[in-house]
Simulated scan of single mutants.
Amino acid sequence: MSASKQWKPIRKAVLPVAGLGTRFLPATKVMPKEMLPLVDRPLVQHAIEEARDAGIDEFVFITGRFKEMLEEHFDYQPELAALLESRGKPDMAEKVKASEIPAGQLFLTRQPKPLGLGHAIWCAKKLIGDDPFAILLPDDVVLNPGGPGCLAQMIETYNQTGGNLVAVMDVPREKTASYGILDIKSDDGRRVDIKGLVEKPKPENAPSTLSIIGRYILQPELFTYLDKFEKGVGGEIQLTDAMANLIGQQPFHGLRYDGQRYDCGSRVGFIEANIAFAMHDPEIGDTVKSIIKKHAQNL
Rank of each mutant, 00 (worst) to 15 (best):
L36P: 06
D91R: 15
P282G: 08
E156Q: 14
Q105R: 13
S2P: 06
G118L: 04
Y179P: 01
Y158S: 03
M243K: 05
G196Q: 08
I56P: 04
A103H: 15
P16E: 09
N245R: 10
Y216L: 10
T287C: 15
A54I: 04
V198F: 02
Q260V: 13
K89I: 12
I121E: 03
T63H: 08
K29L: 11
N205Y: 14
G147D: 10
P112E: 11
I275N: 10
V17N: 03
G55P: 04
I184K: 00
M35S: 07
K185I: 12
W122E: 11
L210A: 01
T63W: 03
E221D: 14
P32F: 01
F61K: 05
Q45E: 11
D227A: 12
L255Q: 06
L43H: 00
M31P: 04
K113A: 15
F277R: 00
L70S: 02
T240W: 08
L36I: 05
P16T: 10
H46P: 05
P207V: 06
S2D: 13
T22H: 14
R261D: 05
V166L: 09
I291C: 11
N298W: 09
A27F: 08
I135E: 00
E272N: 13
C264S: 06
P112C: 09
G248W: 07
V192Y: 00
I56E: 00
V198D: 02
R11D: 09
R256Y: 08
Y257I: 11
A47N: 05
W7C: 06
S208P: 04
I292G: 07
P9C: 06
Y257E: 01
A242C: 08
L83S: 14
N144K: 12
A81C: 10
V17F: 03
I181E: 01
I271Y: 11
K294L: 13
D140K: 05
P32K: 08
P102K: 00
A276I: 00
G232Q: 03
I247R: 05
G163E: 01
S178R: 03
F66H: 13
V14E: 02
A93S: 12
W7L: 09
H73F: 15
L246I: 11
I56Q: 02
R11G: 05
E85H: 14
W7R: 03
G196F: 10
I217D: 03
G55F: 06
L136K: 03
Y76M: 12
F61T: 04
I181V: 10
A206E: 02
P203Y: 11
A18E: 07
K33R: 13
L143D: 01
G189Q: 05
H253Y: 15
D170Y: 08
K5R: 15
L20P: 03
L36W: 03
K12I: 03
D187Y: 09
R261I: 09
S4I: 13
K200F: 02
L127T: 06
V60E: 01
E204D: 15
E68N: 13
A18P: 01
I291V: 13
A81D: 07
P37A: 04
D91E: 15
E236K: 15
P282T: 08
V288E: 02
R23A: 09
S99Q: 09
D75M: 14
P220I: 07
L84C: 03
D187A: 07
I155Q: 00
W7F: 13
D258K: 15
M69H: 11
P172L: 11
F107N: 04
L210I: 05
R215C: 12
F24P: 00
N298S: 12
K12E: 03
M279T: 06
G116F: 01
